[in-house]
Structure formats: C-alpha cells, structure tokens
Design a binder for these strands. Sequence first.
DNA 1: AAAGAACGCAACCGCGGTATT
DNA 2: GAATACCGCGGTTGCGTTCTT
Length: 315
Amino acid sequence: MGRAPCCDKAAVKKGPWSPEEDAMLKNYIEEHGTGGNWIALPHTIGLKRCGKSCRLRWLNYLRPNIKHGDFTPEEDSIICSLYISIGSRWSIIAAQLPGRTDNDVKNYWNTKLKKRLLGRRKDRDAHHRQGAGAATSQTSAENTNDAGERALSASAMERIQLCMHLQELQNPLGAAHHNPVVWPGCSRAATLSNSSFNSNSSTVTVAEQAGRSSSMNGHLMGAQLEGGAAMDGGLGSPSSAENSNVISMEAELEELLYGEGSGSGKAGAVDGGVQHGDVDWWSYDNQVKSPVGCWDFTPETTNAVFQDYTSVYDI
DNA sequence: AAAGAACGCAACCGCGGTATT
DNA sequence: GAATACCGCGGTTGCGTTCTT
C-alpha cells in the first residue's frame, strides 16, 4: 500500500511563487504561525499550493532573518570543514550558519565551493586514464577502479580528498587515511560544543547526527563497511578485526585515488601534498599562494580548522 | 549581435523518520 | 503492533540569467 499523496497534484499550482502568494503566506504565518500543520495551511489561507511547497517557501525565502547573497570566507570555512566531517548533511551545516538555509548551503557547495576545491579532479582523472591507456589496454585494475568509483559516492570521494589534503598539511609524512574525520567510527563521539562551530541556539552532536540516519546518505561507512566491519557512528576504537578491515579499505582507497601500484598512497605527492600525480588538483588558479589558496585563507587557518576537528574527535 | 553553453538558484520529488490513531 | 499522516531532508530538475564564441 503506497502512501497517500499529501495533496491533490492536479489542483495545486507549481512553479515560481508570485508576490501575492508570498504576501499571503508571509502575512498569515506572521500572524498565526504555521499551526503545526503545513498540509492544512494552504487550504486555510486559500492558496493553491502544496503544503510542502509552502513550508519550503517559508523556510528558504520568506522566513525573517534569511541571509541572501555572498557567503563570507568564514562561512566557506565552516561549510568545508563540516562537509569533510559529516558529509552532505546540509541541514546540520546550515544550522551553524545563522540566516542560511540548507538549500542555500547545498546550492553554494554544489555550484561554487565544490568546483573551487575539486575542479582539477577531472584533469587528474583524464591524466590518469591517459597514462593507464598508454601502458596497457583496458586492464582489470582499471575496471576495478571504475567499479570503485561507482561504489564510493561522490560525497565520500570528495571528503577523502579534502581530508587527505588537510592531513598532509598538518603532517606530510603521516598516513592521511588515519583520520577519524573520514572514519568517524574510529573515534569517540564528541559534540561541536567543544569547537568553534556551535551556534548560539543549538549544540549539534555531529557524530550523533551523522549516525542518526540509517541510510547514511553519501557516507563512506554506510557504503563500504556494512557487515562485520561496519563502524556505527562512533562507539570507541575499532577492534583488531575492524582495524584490518580499515587497512584493507585504505588500500582500496589508495587504489581508487592513486591507481595501481601507488604503494604508500603518496605517489607523486610533493611539496607538502599539494600535488597528487602530476596535477595540482587542489589548486584553483594560477595565482595560488598557499596550498589552499582557493579558500582565501591561510594554511594556518586551514590547520586551525583541522585542529578543531581533531580535538572534536578526540584524536 | 546572435546562438549556444554554462551557471546559479528556486522549487519539486521521493524517501526515511516520527508522531498519531 | 500496524496503518496512516505529516515533517524534514537530500538529491534532482527546470528555467532564467550570464558568459563565451
């Protein structure tokens, strides 16, 4: 038995909101509140809109104190850091940015930040494929790579790349993959109240929030470690069995990230990890002054952000 | 100046979680 | 405990705008 539709699709208007509709909704909610029932609200007002649509319009546009326009470097920093930590949990990330909505943050990440940070990945991939193609024809290793790309969500891949970069900044010789930010199950849960990212009104337990959803959308753990090795959102250090799985996972990730025979996973890494392979795929433009110049803040700032997270996760 | 491509944003869709009956 | 209804979230789409050729 399927779920009943929340509204009569044929009877509701779709598409952009008119100023009149905005005014009706805004006036009513400011005067009466939502009444705790978004589905009934449009009928009450006389709007030919779906209740969900009204809710979205209110939350993303009409609500007081909504901030529109450019994001500040501080906001960029928070978004990047939280994305690394918890992935595409936009509502949680937006909660740390007063006046920003999850939709705003999501759009900003997808259209600006992601491109800025990962824009060079295509180049790297193209370069990698070209090299592999020159050595052999379609190898099984390459096929494995492709399968891995499918298995790992884009979100997970991005987080891995970002974390490796940040860790290499902090410790160029260290194992970038031993990062509880990427492997949240490896460390104890901690709250953002210890970090610089807690809002005035709410303290978000990132690990809890991240583990709350059984689906773990876009999360590496959910995608790759289901079964015996699954690490369930942070309940202590992994067992030795888990460790061995993590190690094999790391090997797999190295394979995915750097290709066959990458060894330590640092193949081609130079100058504090700016480059992987032959492409400085973290750089945004040619005027990069620091390895993270694309973020418009200094390596010190970046390290501070990372330090926040290492402390949050009690490394 | 025109056409096509790329971009950015608002809105929609579908699903999972949770409260209620 | 099961069925139902609603809420909230993340992913995706559609379309207007801007940029490039």
